[in-house]
Design a protein around this nucleic acid. Structure first.
Lengths: 258, 258
DNA sequence: CGTTGTTGTCGTCAGATTGACGATATCTAC
DNA sequence: GTAGATATCGTCAATCTGACGACAACAACG
């Protein structure tokens, strides 16, 4: 028996409809340290307070589009289209927070994103942001607005974990880089010192990780280093390091948590 | 100069307000195979189609409360309060999908959750679900409603990855279990065969993973096995396996992806 | 031009871990 | 008492990793 086209039910009246924001944990490595992008809020709530860049998702845009738009509006930094999986930038979803209890204006759901990028120019404030700047992660400062301290901590931990198994650390490097630069990224993200000789052996000996360019870097004192690029066609979040390059376990309570 | 209490701005008029659903990838191990919980939809859209349990988040409830409520309504299975970190059940956020292009009724944001639990009784359908049942993961069947095939695939991959580094595999076991039972979980989740001797050495030799109960299991043929429980006070998602127990890499294209 | 200092790369050594597998222990069923 | 099945302990060789030395290759300097 032929059936007519089904008529979609409506969204139930009882369903909540929540404003949704995107908040971006943008991380880079500058001056040998892991740094996060923050902006000062121009509007209440939390006016004058530092916060992660972000804002409300508009109807008819995707979460990723909203993330890119808010970042560009508030910092003048531009996420290249399709950052995930291409180019030096890497954008991925982190986690969803709320909706209850995190915004004085009422329930707001926040879908947080993690953005990793090479060091780039100073951001310039715009949109709802008064000032945009890079701040070293871990520096003790006044708390961020909303629940952004927790979101930032989650983003940092995600980055720390992912570079154990994937070539994602290269997202902090320009397209061509030396092994010492890559090691510097690991040291900044993990806050540890790594042995140059062991790191070099592991990085260059792992299939599917680095590809030599055939050229040399240098300019400073010391032997000029070979330049590498990420092996072509590799998903930066794929499990390429297998076995992984494990971050040193700090003595004292607790192995790193997932 | 004293300032009056700040007046929160309103949510901007231009902000989207989206209906939000939770969808639960509930996984267990039964009959030596990884199985996922699905329900048949009673309502349009996709009436009659199999789907992950889930539904709309109500105002004034948290995402986790909504996940537990929808699961209980649709399958009569009850997530114990505070499942995360306690008891054999484990509930964690997976990823957020949408809001565009996934529901014929319009934009709907889905916050997906992963629930791992020991084998338990057969589910009974209720609420908006016509039938609730466990289906083996990977079995070729008609596609699930919405984007639930992709959500399910993401959940399975998350489980596969996390048991490499964390004691989360024990979430599939009852509170006391043998090493063979635990190995059976790994084999079901990874779809591989593991060497009983090497697995036993790794599982019992990893600090912070298993704690012997002092008693023996058994009843079948063969030497009765020691019973273990998860080491007390351990976060089931913590990186306890360090170095990790790596899943065998299948020959052919591609290491496992993060 | 030779020397010094710095950085990069290749490699050795010892210990730890892992995969493959044998041997023995301990049970149930017959 | 024997056979079959499962659990546990262990060996062996290969691989990986941390610690570290040695040499290569540059820039800077006198």
């Amino acid at each position: 028996m032929a059936r007519t086209a089904p008529v979609p039910s409506a969204v139930p009246d009882s369903a909540g409809a929540f404003p949704v924001t995107v908040d971006v944990v943008a991380l880079t490595v500058r001056d040998g340290a892991l740094q996060a992008l923050v902006v000062d809020r121009l509007l209440e709530p939390y006016r004058g307070r530092a916060a992660l860049p972000g804002g409300f998702v508009l109807p008819d845009e995707t979460l990723e589009q909203a993330a890119g738009r808010e970042l560009e509006e508030e910092t003048r930094l531009t996420v290249p289209a399709g950052a995930t999986g291409t180019g030096p930038w890497h954008l991925e979803q982190l986690r969803t927070y709320g909706p209850l209890g995190r915004d004085p204006r009422g329930p707001v759901l926040s879908v947080a994103y993690l953005l990793l990028a090479p060091a780039f120019g100073l951001p310039a404030a715009g949109g709802d942001a008064a000032e945009a700047r890079w701040v070293p992660v871990g520096e003790r400062s006044a708390g961020l607005a909303f629940d952004h301290d927790g979101i930032l901590a989650d983003g940092v931990e995600r980055a720390r974990a992912k570079i154990e198994y994937s070539p994602l650390a290269a997202a902090f490097c320009p397209p061509e880089f030396t092994v010492a630069e890559l090691r510097g990224v690991y040291e900044a993200v993990w806050g540890t010192q790594l042995d140059a000789r062991n790191f070099h052996r592991k990085a260059t000996g792992t299939p599917g990780f680095l590809e030599p360019t055939g050229r040399l870097g240098g300019g400073g004192p010391g032997r000029p280093a070979e330049l590498f690029r990420l092996a072509p066609g590799v998903d930066p979040t794929a499990t390429v390091l297998h076995p992984p390059l494990l971050r040193p376990v700090s003595p004292g309570p607790g192995a790193p948590s997932a």
